[in-house]
Design a protein around this nucleic acid. Structure first.
Length: 593
RNA sequence: GCGCCCGUAGCUCAGUUGGAUAGAGCACCUGGCUUCGAACCAGGUGGUCGGCGGUUCGAAUCCGUCCGGGCGCGCCA
């Protein structure tokens, strides 16, 4: 529709060449946009304003000439000059109503396109460390990533969803030792819990399973555990002094556990803890309706040799150097603010090294475009990852990072504290159980991901008219209800009669609904291209609003066969679009509420 | 100090990538169910788009600067 109108304008401009215009106008400069206000027609074009200067004409004069030169088209009812020199385009009624047969033909595919031309895109999201359950922040990332992936699929991309499991590195050791200490404590060993350990309740749960699995075999006396360990930080000690102390202590404790229980038993505890955490995360996401094509394990990646291979490649290209015993990447040569360590002086790799190898692996698997969804606190890491990719010969802009701003929970105007120290954070599971998946999805998606989100639990739970979730679902259920009422009156919807009489849909309220329906495919394209699922939520609200307004102003089930069927067709099309949209958002579209 | 994000109605936020009179929801006020679901609708009140400069036909949007808020700046992950 849009491009056809733009073509019409292009032909008009061509015919003005040599008279009013002297330089040819590029096709890409001719842009037609939906109007904000129905008084300005259906579409508007600002080309006259843009060309006025170079043509040396007044914008209104130029616009009038373009309008006069516009070829006839069945699409267009009329065009007029308005304001400072806008060209307002009014669609012919038939063109407007053409959206309906399309909706019925395409059904659940209505709104999708092939704009992506099958381009392979890898969307990596959540990727939370398997050291604890998902919290509300992960919930937002999961929701955003899942919906973005669906939007990309809907616009013809070949999308692959992936979760990167950070199951290697120190945080897993900390989890392991935390579980062991809880296990010792439960066995009656008087042992302080390390300040830097994971102290939330789930660790206790894993310790219990450990006791079931191995009995008392891993119990050791407190004296043996603590002998010669450096002092731990004290509870509530200032970060400046505590930071070093608690890390030295926990590292020593990890080493001590290894020597006391042996490497094999240590691995078993680690595997048990990891498997428990991962199962919890997978189950949580599945219950939330968020799925991944692939879960990539950092440990498996390391074992495959991919990290060493990458380091070898960098070294061969002289992109690394050794300084003070550590191996550095020359990232500052590729847009980062400084060089970064890949391998520490103690021989251990940093988090960065396997992560970079992972991104290289994604490219090697044929994904030209990599989209990562990260928490906003990781923004400083973007330049580093890009620099790494560039150093490895990939274009830096192949990686696109969507940064998610933070979530604050409110309960009745009162901010819910989410201190991570005592494990006092709210989990995604708790949130879902309290407000339901649908409300969760929509509340997470309502705001731009670049915007800090205030999530009000009371509002999300309320079954009242101030809850936007119900507003959308109600519109959908309302159509179902009308159809039931129709059957109850012994009538049937006749699609053939409806499509032959769409001309009966000539009121302003009907036009508003029609406009929204016909705009839906454009909206999907835009939401996908700008990585902005929130646009879809707002669109659905507008559509529901237009529908509710019409519903209140008109009777659908009327005597006249032509009018009744035409109106039902519009109602059913509305329902289809609502269902499609809610489906992309991962929310249900109930028939009754 | 440097970097990223943000600042729009009393509150929470949109704003079609520079367009026309800046829009929604909540809150507040008025009205609408013997008629397809009132979980709805119609109308009203409410704005120096953080401040000041600049770019141009035109700025909430782009540039500069200042103010205010969030986050980051490890051989942690």
């Amino acid at each position: 529709m849009k491009t056809e109108l733009e073509d019409l304008l292009a032909r008009a401009l061509e015919s003005l060449q040599g008279t009013l215009l002297h330089t040819p106008v590029e096709r890409s400069a001719i842009v037609v946009e939906r109007t904000r206000d129905a008084q300005h027609g259906d579409f508007a074009c600002n080309i006259a304003l843009r060309l006025a200067k170079s043509a040396g004409r007044k914008p209104t004069e130029l616009a009038a000439a373009i309008v006069a030169a516009l070829p006839r088209s069945p699409l267009l009812a009329r065009a007029e000059v308005a304001g400072a020199g806008f060209i307002n385009l009014y669609l012919a009624g038939d063109a407007q109503r053409d959206a309906l047969p399309r909706v019925f033909e395409q059904g659940e595919r209505y709104g999708t396109s092939q704009a992506g031309a099958g381009a392979r895109v890898l969307v990596e999201f959540v990727s939370a460390n398997p050291t604890g359950p998902l919290h509300v922040g992960h919930g937002r990332q999961a929701t955003y990533g899942a919906t973005l992936a669906k939007l990309l699929q809907a616009t013809g991309h070949d999308v692959h969803r992936e979760y990167y499991i950070n199951d290697a590195g120190r945080q897993v050791d900390i989890l392991t030792v935390s579980v062991w200490v809880r296990y010792l404590q439960a066995g009656g060993i008087g042992l302080p819990f390390p300040v830097n350990g994971y102290r939330a309740g789930y660790v206790q749960g894993i310790a219990t399973r450990l006791a079931v699995a191995c009995g008392a075999a891993l119990q050791r006396p407190a004296a043996a555990v603590l002998a010669g360990l450096p002092p731990d930080a004290s509870e509530g000690e200032a970060e400046a002094t505590a930071g070093k102390k608690k890390e030295l202590y926990i590292d020593a404790l990890i080493a001590r556990m290894r020597e006391l229980v042996g490497a094999a038993a240590y691995e078993e505890v680690l595997e048990l803890a990891l498997a428990a955490m991962l199962a919890d995360i997978r189950e949580d996401l599945a219950a939330y309706g968020v799925e991944f094509e692939q879960w990539t394990s950092e440990r498996a990646l390391a074992r495959s040799g991919a990290v060493d291979c990458m380091l070898g490649r960098l070294a061969a290209q002289q992109q690394t150097y050794t300084q003070e015993g550590a191996l550095w990447l020359r990232s500052s040569a590729f847009g980062d603010t400084e060089d970064r360590v890949l391998v520490r002086a103690n021989g251990q790799q940093t988090y960065f090294a396997p992560d970079l190898a992972y991104h290289l692996d994604k490219r090697a698997r044929g994904y030209a475009r990599l989209i990562d969804v990260w928490g906003a606190d990781h923004h400083g890491y973007i330049a580093r990852m890009r620099a790494g990719l560039v150093a490895l010969g990939a274009p830096g802009d192949c990686l696109e990072v969507c940064l998610m701003q933070f979530v604050s929970l409110y309960r009745g105007g009162e901010k819910v504290p989410m201190g991570k120290r005592d494990g006092q954070f709210v989990t995604l599971r708790q949130l879902r159980e309290e407000v339901g998946n649908d409300a969760c999805r929509l509340f997470f998606l309502m705001r731009s991901h670049e915007q800090h989100l205030d999530f009000d639990l009371e509002l999300a739970k309320s079954r009242s008219n101030d809850n936007p979730v119900y507003y959308l679902q109600y519109a959908h259920a309302r159509v179902a209800s009308v159809m039931k009422q129709l059957a109850a009156r012994g009538l049937q919807y006749d699609a053939a009669v409806a499509l032959a009489n769409l001309g009966a849909l000539d009121g302003a309220h009907e036009a508003a609904v029609l406009t929204a329906i016909s705009r839906y495919p454009e909206l999907i394209a835009q939401a996908a291209a700008s990585r902005a699922p929130h646009l879809l939520v707002h669109f659905l609200r507008d559509l529901a609003q237009a529908f509710h307004t019409w519903y209140n102003a008109a009777q659908f089930i009327v005597e006249d066969d032509a009018i009744r069927n035409a109106r039902l067709a519009l109602a059913l099309a509305t329902q289809q679009v609502l269902r499609n949209g809610l489906g992309l958002l991962g929310a249900s579209a109930p028939e009754t509420m």
